[in-house]
């Protein structure tokens, strides 16, 4: 009896867990997502900017990583990006760049 209950519970739970899976459009709970959420404050959700701030949605990872590194070193002049870029490591810049490359098309 107890075995039967356990089996039914686990089967049911299995079905439910499958239906729990995030929909395809769901954003991953990831370090890249965490870091990139900071960028969205000025560049818009997933980098889609409606105004004067450059739109970075769907830009290649290479483009974004290079820009961030050059803002950080001062090679690329900026008003505020130099101040921001100094707050991130090489690895974090890589995660941010990959995030915007991969998540540009999300509605």
């Amino acid at each position: 009896m107890h075995h039967a209950i356990a089996l039914r519970l686990s089967l049911t739970a299995g079905v439910i867990l499958l239906s729990f899976g995030p929909a395809a459009a769901a954003e991953e709970l990831s370090q890249g997502g965490m870091l990139s959420a900071s960028c969205a404050g000025c560049h818009g959700t997933d980098g889609r900017s409606p105004g004067a701030i450059p739109d970075i949605s769907g830009k290649s990872a290479e483009f974004i990583r290079t820009a961030l590194e050059e803002f950080r070193s001062g090679k690329r002049p900026s008003t505020v990006m130099g101040r921001h870029a100094k707050g991130y490591t090489d690895e974090e810049m890589r995660l941010i760049a990959e995030y915007f490359e991969q998540n540009g098309g999300r509605p």
Binding site: G41, C42, T45, S49, G51, A52, I53
Partner: peptide, 9 residues
Amino acid sequence: GWYQSTTAD
């Protein structure tokens, strides 16, 4: 632009 982006976000 910052205002427009952050409120859109």
